[in-house]
Design a protein around this nucleic acid. Structure first.
Lengths: 224, 224
DNA sequence: CCACAATTCAAACGAACGTTTGAATTAATA
DNA sequence: TATTAATTCAAACGTTCGTTTGAATTGTGG
């Protein structure tokens, strides 16, 4: 039985690992640093999670599973209330973005955000596979919903635009220090409502961009 | 004197390191793996670059400096031919994107792309600082040009949209395996002209998105 | 040809890593 | 309380890492 709220060895390890992974990176964080921060014995990691890889996987799963479940629930609700008709694009984007923004804003979840960006570059084979599996279904669902909202797009065009959309969203959710620095403090990434409004406005406009002719004249002064 | 083209120890090391860094990540690549691939002695790294950190920095600088110089030259040319008037938005975006796309497409530069994405999550303090310095001026220049092309945007709004833009662009240039997998082979990231047209179309539409009211009604079914 | 610097080389260094071990301790069961 | 399983603990294991060393080799200028 877990004693009360936040005190089992497993939880202490997960919390400490999440914190250190997000600030220093996974490879650069040693088990000794984690167990020191968690004030538990070094061998606990291998006892409870089998290996460092097992701990890493659990750290991600603990956050990503509830996150994606919430996204799917929101999308389900939208599809039910739409009753077969296409859903408004902004509502779909909201269902994707808001759970992440809200999670990133909660006091316990702040450290996750930098982790999420690291996902895409960390070359760990096992983690990469885990994430591909975790996101494949939810991406399929959201792509389908967006495709129904934008029926004039071909399959290829839709995929490209979703790809661009993911880039903007991931970069925004994950790399908030960067926008602070870029703007010289002018932009406030903790203003969830502002981020939501701007991000969705940008992405929705991009997704709805008019289809250009294939052989449009090259834009000025750029063909060398 | 360098003997002929691709055979000095320094160059062999840089090529091998670039290749391995991009496929396995920086931390996960040992000097022994690099020197083995380059067929040079282990101690050469410390002799020619001082340390592994010095090698890493040189690997990035060798690609990023010419890249950013080309971007700045293109922007310079645009500003000169515009003679004080605002430049067309698409032309500015072209000046940013094309050097990267072209570089990523060249046979020797293919491996750089995955590297570039890793930049933003690799937590190495020295590398982080180097990149911040490398990109600060060029970002300032491009932000200013985009701001002149979109005079109706406030400074804060502009910075946010540039941030979204960078996310889409970085994700596109860096993570091309991901778009291939996402689309099930439908999208071809090696089609530079197609990527350019779609990416710039998406980003330009996002940058030009109409300014929403601050207190717009929340989009359907999403306020919990 | 010789002296001298630049470069390469094999070998080793100490430190840090993930993991394992087996005994000590705590909790659960009856 | 006696027995057994679950957990914690200190210590060590073997490996790999980046770096250093000092001798051997190569290239250069007088």
């Amino acid at each position: 039985m877990e004693s009360q709220a936040p005190s089992t060895t497993k939880d202490r390890l997960l919390d400490a690992a999440e914190e250190l992974f997000s600030s220093r990176g996974i490879d650069a964080t040693s088990l000794r640093a984690i167990t020191s921060a968690a004030e538990v014995n070094l061998a606990s990691v291998n006892y409870h999670f089998g290996s460092k890889d097992g701990l890493v996987k659990t750290v991600f799963l603990r956050r990503l599973e509830p996150l994606n479940n919430e996204r799917l629930e929101l999308l389900d609700a939208l599809e039910i209330s739409a009753a077969g008709a296409p859903i408004e694009l902004e509502a779909i984007l909201d269902a994707w973005v808001m759970p992440a923004l809200r999670m990133g804003h909660s006091p316990e979840g702040k450290r996750i955000k930098r982790l999420m960006s690291g996902i895409y570059s960390e070359p760990g084979d096992t983690l990469q596979a885990l994430l591909r599996e975790l996101f494949s279904e939810i991406l399929r669902r959201f792509c389908a919903a967006i495709g129904r909202a934008l029926p004039e797009l071909s399959g290829e065009e839709l995929m490209w635009r979703v790809h661009f959309m993911l880039g903007a969203m991931i970069h925004t959710v994950a790399d908030q220090p960067s926008i602070r620095a870029l703007s010289g403090g002018l932009c406030d990434p903790s203003d969830i409502e502002g981020v939501r409004r701007r991000l969705i406005g940008f992405v929705a406009a991009g997704l709805r961009a008019p289809l250009e002719e294939k052989n449009a004249p090259p834009t000025a002064g750029e063909d060398r």
